[in-house]
Design a protein around this nucleic acid. Structure first.
Lengths: 225, 225
DNA sequence: TTTTGCGTAAACATATTGTTAAGATGGAAC
DNA sequence: GTTCCATCTTAACAATATGTTTACGCAAAA
C-alpha cells in the first residue's frame, strides 16, 4: 500500500499490542511510532507531531486519560486525532474519554479490520476541517501555511491583508459591512479611520492581480463568486 | 528479493545449520556472515558490525551465552539484535538468555518460516526508532544522531537551535506561532523574552547558510517547502 | 452643481523583527 | 574546587515591514 503521509503514535504498555497495531497500520500505509507508557507518549508526541494518537487507557506513568487531557490543553494538539484503547464494555472510560476530547474508541482485543476501518474513517472525516483552506475560483487561501495561491503561484500577503481577504472568502458573495470588517479584523478596542480599509483592499487587489473583491458603495465589500 | 541492507551474523558449530539459516536469510535479502564457534563469532562481530547476531547456545570456544554477555558489555553492541538458537524446550537457556539481553529465541530444529518471520519482526520493531529523520528539500534532520545534514555536509546545532529547527520541519510550510514555539520548546513553565526566539532563528539561518526559514511578521515562523 | 463615498499615492507612525554584544548559566575538563 | 567553554538569555539599538493617516482626485448620486 502506498504511503499516506500520516503519522500515528501508538501508546501501550504491552509490546504485543504495539506490534499488532503497528504492523496492521504500517501495512495500510501509515507511519507508526510506538510509546511504552504515558510519559513516553507525551514526549514522542512532542517530537513527532503525529496526526493521530492511540492511547491505551491503562498505562504506567500517566494513563491514557491524563495524557489526552494534557495534550488537549496545548493548541498544537487541538486538531490531533485521539483514539482510546479500552477494555470491552468499559462505559466509564467512554464517557470520560469524550469529555477529554477523544475522537473514537477501540475495544480490546483489537480486531485488525475494525482498527483499520476506524482509522481510515477518522482521517476521511477530518480531511476537510483539517486543511482549513478556502477555495473560491482560482484562489486558494491557506490560513495554516499563511499563503494565498492563485493559479499555482504563491502570493505573500501581510497579516491584516490576509485576515481581510480570508474574512471575505469565508462567505463568498456575501457583503461585509465596513463595521463588520472593523470589528472582525481590528476588534472593538482599536479605532481606525475609514480609509484604512480601502487601502488594505487596494493592496490585496494589487498583489492578487485579479479583481476578486467587489465594492458595494455605501455598504461594504464582498468576494466575487 | 531485493537487498535489505542488513547484515546477520550466524554462529553455530554445525555446518548444516549454518547452511540452512544462511540460505533462507539470503533469499530474504539479508547479507549473512557465518562463524563456527564463540571466539570466531566475537571476531566476526567486531569485523563486520552486523545488525543481528544469531548465536547457538552450545558452541565450542565460548558458548552463546558467554558471547552475548561479552558483546553486551560493549556500547557498540548495545543496540545489536541477538537471537539464541536453543534446543526445543530449553527453559533454562531462555531465562538466562533474557538476563543477558537476548531479543528472541529460535528452537531447533529450525523452521525456515518461523526463522524468517521472527527476523523480519525484530527488524520491523527497531525500524521505527531508527527512522526518525525528517527531510525537507536538501536538509536532513536526524534527531537520533542529533545532526543536520545539508548537501552531504554535517552541521552542528546547539540543543535549542536543533529543537526549533526540528519543530518547524515537522510540518513544513505550516506557520508556527510564537506562542506555539514557546510552549513546545520552552514549555509552559519557563518564560523567556520574545527576542530569544529571534536570536535562535538567526543562529540557525547563519549556521545553515540557506534561508529555509521564513518569518511571517506578526504571526510566526515557518519552514519553506 | 453639490454632495457623498470611494480610489490612490505618498507620508508618516508604529510594531515587529534582526542584529550585536554582553552577562548568566551550567557542565566538562583539569 | 577551579577554570574553561559552549550555550542560553537578555538588553539595547538598528532595520524593516506593516499599518494608518493625510491629502487629493474622481465618479456617481442627489
Amino acid at each position: 500500500m502506498e504511503p499516506k503521509g500520516k503519522k500515528i503514535l501508538i501508546a501501550d504498555d504491552e509490546p504485543d499490542i504495539l506490534e499488532i497495531l503497528s504492523y496492521n497500520l504500517t501495512r495500510e500505509g501509515y507511519e507508526t511510532i510506538t510509546a511504552k507508557d504515558g510519559e513516553d507518549a507525551i514526549q514522542k508526541a512532542r517530537l513527532y507531531k503525529p496526526d493521530l494518537i492511540m492511547l491505551d487507557v491503562m498505562m504506567p506513568n500517566k494513563n491514557g486519560m491524563e495524557v489526552c487531557k494534557l495534550l488537549r490543553t496545548q493548541p498544537v494538539y487541538q486538531d490531533t486525532l485521539i483514539i482510546f484503547l479500552t477494555a470491552l464494555s468499559d462505559e466509564t472510560s467512554h464517557i470520560k474519554g469524550l469529555e477529554y476530547g477523544a475522537d473514537d474508541f477501540i475495544s480490546k482485543p483489537v480486531s485488525p479490520k475494525i482498527l483499520v476501518s476506524k482509522v481510515n474513517a477518522l482521517f476521511r472525516r477530518i480531511q476537510k476541517p483539517d486543511d482549513k483552506t478556502i477555495q473560491t475560483g482560482s484562489i486558494i487561501i491557506d490560513p495554516v501555511k499563511f499563503v494565498v495561491t492563485i493559479n499555482g503561484q504563491d502570493i505573500v500577503l501581510a497579516k491584516k491583508e490576509f485576515e481581510l481577504l480570508h474574512l471575505l472568502a469565508t462567505k463568498p458573495g456575501r457583503v461585509f459591512l465596513r463595521n463588520e470588517i472593523l470589528s472582525q479584523i481590528w476588534g472593538t478596542e482599536v479605532i481606525v479611520g475609514d480609509r484604512t480599509i480601502d487601502v488594505h483592499i487596494r493592496k490585496i487587489r494589487q498583489k492578487l492581480g485579479i479583481d476578486c473583491i467587489t465594492t458595494v458603495k455605501g455598504v461594504g465589500y464582498k468576494m466575487v463568486v
